[in-house]
Amino acid sequence: PIEDLFDSLNKHIQRSEFEQAVKVADQVLSIAPGDEDAIRCKVVALIRADDIDKALSTIQSSQRPTVDFSFFKAYCLYRQNKLDEAVQSLKSQERNIATMLLESQILYRLGKMDACIDIYQKLQKSKIESLEINSVASLITAGRSSE
C-alpha cells in the first residue's frame, strides 16, 4: 500500500539516501500520479542529490499546475545560472526569508549590489546563520566595505 511506500520514502530521507528516495517517490507516482507530497519529495531529493537538471524537468513535467513549485524552480534556474528566468519564477512568490535569500544571491550574480545589500539589511533582524558572510561580500563587491 501507498503508506508503506511513504514509510520507506521517509526512511531514505532521514538517512540522506536521496537517490533511493527518488526511486520510491517514482513508485508512489506510478500508483498515484500527481501526488503532491511525492512530487515535492522527488524534486527536493533530486536537488539534494545535486541533479538540478532532473529536478527542473520534474517540475516542468508536473501534471499538477495547482502546486506552486516556483521557489524550487527559481532555485534550480539559479543553480543553472539562468538568472533572468530565476527572477521571473520568484516574482509570483510571496516574499519570505527563503525567497529573499535566493533573490539576494541572484542579484549578487547579476552584479546588482545595491539591491542585494538592501535585502541583507532587511534580513538582519531575522538572525540567519552566516548571513553576514554574504552581506559583507556584497558590501565589498559594491565598494562599500566601510559600512
Binding site: I2, E3, F6, D7, L9, N10, I13, E36, D37, R40, C41, V44, A45, I47, R48, F71, F72, Y75, Y78, I97, A98, L101, L102, Q105, Y108, I128, S130, L131, I133, N134, V136, A137, S138, I140, T141
Partner: peptide
C-alpha cells in the same frame, strides 16, 4: 569577488510525511 554562501539551499525542504505513513 568574495565568495557568497548558498543560504537559500537550507530552505529546500521535504514536506512532512507524518500523515501519509
Amino acid at each position: 569577488n568574495p565568495i557568497v554562501l548558498d543560504l537559500a539551499y537550507n530552505f529546500i525542504d521535504f514536506p512532512s510525511l507524518e500523515n501519509r505513513m
